[in-house]
Design a protein around this nucleic acid. Structure first.
Length: 440
DNA sequence: CTTAGGG
DNA sequence: CCCTAAG
């Protein structure tokens, strides 16, 4: 089971990993300055912190899913997973694994050394096959041979990973967490290595973004355009209120105060992540991932995203508790109140796979209500997902602030529940939040 | 009907 | 998100 899992998630994740990088780079332009800062600010502490909680985070995700009662999930399975995860958690706690990992992570140099050593000599690119092969024995092997095996497998992973992104690691990490705890020592090892490497990759990513040293080539083109547009939009918005003029007038009227793009980006980040959207998003993704084990692609996508999001959460994006927040569910509560240390900046992962369409509209609430623990007191409010917000931003960038229907039609055609007014409201909220944040 | 803006 | 006013 374990082998399969890792294997599955591993092979396809390569492509997607690149994808993510692209996306990240692609969207960075709007707020390059902030982002770069944000990313740079993500010091080791944050990561280690994140890692430490990452183990639990997965549990949380599972639990949340379960709690959410998201549709016809096999509760039995989930429960089983939960139990397993719990076990792992306990084990970790008992053996102070997390602490050890943390220390390990804190040692950047060490991590670098490891990566260097692993990358250089092996330098192989056999992703799926090699990694899976080398890993299989590790998992199935005796606990005694754990050390050697884990090293070799790790080396392979890292080797391939050198040319790719860190997402793979995360994927693996997730999988590992999913696995039962009987071989936790091995997993721990794996986690340590991959995670430490994660740091590097993330750092690389971070560095690459501001520099535009692009993994994505199209990001260069997009940057100027979007940036300017953003300024314009922001300007418009800013002006609109006082003047009450049409957006056209404002558009041509000239610029006045303009909200820093950075603040906007922050707002977006926070807003979107703040909203339980992030939770629901994450959950749904994780859920789908676990459900559809038959579809590897989806699986890793979800896992990948999940882990990504986890990082965000861990970095403390959650700032202001929202009225719409999930509450009442113990797991979620803890989820929410989780470590929210650190800068509230950072770029959300541009995700395009928000498959939740009209189908989710009504059964959405129904599902939640079905939840065992409690029904979250969400009304008839539809959460804005990160991708939605991003779409919105893009749409506004393209059509301006006055053409909500156009944006609706062209970018939200699949989202029946989003009316032009909704879009406008969301935008308004974003701006509001952005300005508020600015004042702070 | 669409948008702007207040609730 | 809802409602209303205004174009």
């Amino acid at each position: 089971m374990l082998e399969c899992k890792v294997d599955e998630s591993f092979v396809p994740s390569l492509d997607e990993a690149v994808e993510v990088q692209h996306l990240l780079a692609e969207h960075k332009p709007d707020h390059a300055s902030v982002d770069s800062d944000a990313w740079k600010h993500l010091d080791i502490e944050d990561f280690s912190y994140g890692f430490e909680y990452g183990l639990k985070r997965n549990c949380g995700g599972l639990d949340c899913n379960n709690a959410q009662g998201q549709e016809e999930l096999e509760f039995g399975v989930l429960d089983g997973l939960l139990d397993e995860v719990d076990e792992v958690d306990d084990i970790h706690a008992a053996n102070d694994i997390s602490g050890a990992c943390k220390d390990f992570l804190l040692d950047v140099e060490l991590a670098e050394k490891i990566s260097d050593l692993d990358c250089a000599p092996h330098g192989r690119l056999h992703l799926g096959n090699t990694s899976s092969e080398s890993q299989s024995p590790g998992f199935s092997g005796s606990s005694n041979g754990t050390h050697g095996l884990s090293e070799s497998s790790t080396a392979t992973i890292l080797g391939s990973e050198c040319k790719n992104s860190s997402v793979e690691n995360k994927t693996v990490k997730c999988e590992l967490n999913d696995s039962s705890g009987d071989k936790w020592d091995y997993h721990a090892r794996e986690n340590v290595f991959t995670t430490s490497h994660d740091l590097e990759n993330l750092d690389e990513l971070d560095d690459a973004k501001p520099l535009e040293s692009g993994i994505s080539s199209d990001d260069n083109e997009k940057k100027p355009v979007q940036t300017s547009k953003m300024s314009t939009l922001l300007r418009q918005k800013r002006l609109r209120k006082p003047t009450k003029s049409s957006y056209n007038e404002l558009h041509h009227g000239g610029a006045l105060t303009l909200i820093k793009e950075e603040s906007l980006s922050e707002t977006i980040t926070q807003e979107t992540l703040d909203d339980d959207e992030k939770l629901s998003d994450l959950k749904s993704k994780c859920i789908s991932g676990r459900q559809k084990i038959s579809s590897p692609a989806l699986k890793h996508k979800c896992l990948k995203i999940g882990s990504r999001n986890e990082l965000h959460h861990l970095r403390g994006f959650k700032s202001v508790p929202r009225e719409e927040s999930f509450t009442g569910i113990s797991t979620q509560a803890s989820f929410e109140s989780r470590p929210r240390r650190g800068r509230p900046k950072k770029r959300p992962v541009p995700e395009s796979d928000d498959e939740h369409n009209a189908s989710e509209s009504e059964d959405d609430r129904a599902k939640r209500r079905k939840s065992k623990k409690s029904a979250d007191r969400r009304k008839h409010q539809r959460m804005w997902t990160l991708s939605e917000v991003m779409k919105l931003i893009d749409g506004i960038a393209q059509y301006g602030t006055g053409r909500w229907t156009d944006i609706k039609k062209l970018l939200f055609s699949s989202y029946a529940y989003r009316t032009p007014v909704d879009l406008r409201d969301k935008w308004r909220n974003l701006l509001r939040a952005s300005s508020v944040q600015k004042q702070k």
